[in-house]
Amino acid sequence: MSGRLQQALDQIGRLPGVLQWRKSRFDKMFEAGEACCCRGLFETHAQAAAAAPKTRPLGYDNTDAAGMYRDRLDRVYPSDYAMMLWLQNAFADGVRDVFDLGGHVGVAYYAYQRMLAFPSDVSWRVHDVPAVLAAGQQEALERDPARRLTFTDNFETAADADMLFTAGCLQYLEQTLAERIASLRRRPRWLLVNLLPLHEQSAYWTVQGIGTAFCPYRIQHAQTFFTDLERLGYRVMDKWENLEKDCWVAFEPEHSLDRYYGAALKLE
């Protein structure tokens, strides 16, 4: 399609009557759980939660959501390789106790061992919502004969970990990562963060449809995210882009993202 034709179609799509029809059609698909993307812009988690359709549960604390991501248990994706590299470096640095914030049923624990030799004395603890923790404990009965994977509903135990590991979770939390870490009696030496939506100019909440549920979804301001962690004493060792991930906020191109981010940080 030529540039001029595409431009003309875009202009037609923005005409008041056409735009109203497009939004109405999208809303029906979104509320039916058929559009796995985001809708709306909000200042707070509470506002986003209130705007979520009532046609599906809110958040991941339900059986259907707990059954997601099974495809990731036995394979890794391009966005995983930087995390595996830095996890290997951290193991060499003496890391043995890993606290996996939002690790679902132990997705990274299982998948990464296909590529990395985990130290025999590693302890990997997953913190997630109750429905997911229950599914993870059941999964581990068959998948983890070494019993190195455990599950906890207490974030405070992250204070005992050498590393806080998180991939694709921070956007669902009411508190920022810096706020959570600041509340701990002891800060983990290492932070590995991945699949993080960051915007260069602004911070906002939206509502994400995941098919089985709707979730308040946070897009953080990039510079603020790292500055807040640096104030806690963390030094950024590396940053990378996750080009396989994007975030489309319907009818909001300036607030949509064409990539996500990851980073490795260490406490100085």
Rank of each mutant, 00 (worst) to 15 (best):
A82V: 08
V193Q: 11
H199L: 02
D238S: 15
A146F: 04
D74R: 06
L73S: 03
Y217N: 09
R231Q: 14
L73K: 00
Q11G: 06
G106W: 02
V107L: 09
E200G: 05
Y109L: 01
R22I: 03
A203I: 10
H221I: 02
F26M: 14
N62R: 02
A82F: 13
W86K: 00
D153N: 14
F251L: 05
C36I: 02
F251P: 03
N62P: 08
A213V: 11
S183A: 15
Y109E: 02
A131T: 05
A52E: 09
K239A: 05
D93F: 01
W21M: 14
W240F: 15
V76R: 09
R14F: 02
G103A: 10
M29W: 03
G40C: 13
L116D: 07
R259G: 03
T166H: 05
T150P: 00
R56S: 04
L9R: 10
R114G: 11
E241W: 05
R25I: 03
P216N: 07
L198K: 01
A66K: 06
M1C: 13
G13M: 10
S79N: 12
I219M: 11
T44C: 08
N242F: 09
C36T: 12
F214V: 13
P53L: 03
Y261E: 15
A146R: 08
V193S: 11
T176I: 03
A8H: 04
L232K: 06
C247L: 15
R96D: 10
R259I: 10
L41N: 10
T166D: 04
W248G: 04
D258V: 12
V129N: 03
S202G: 05
P197R: 00
D121H: 03
G17K: 09
W124T: 02
R235I: 05
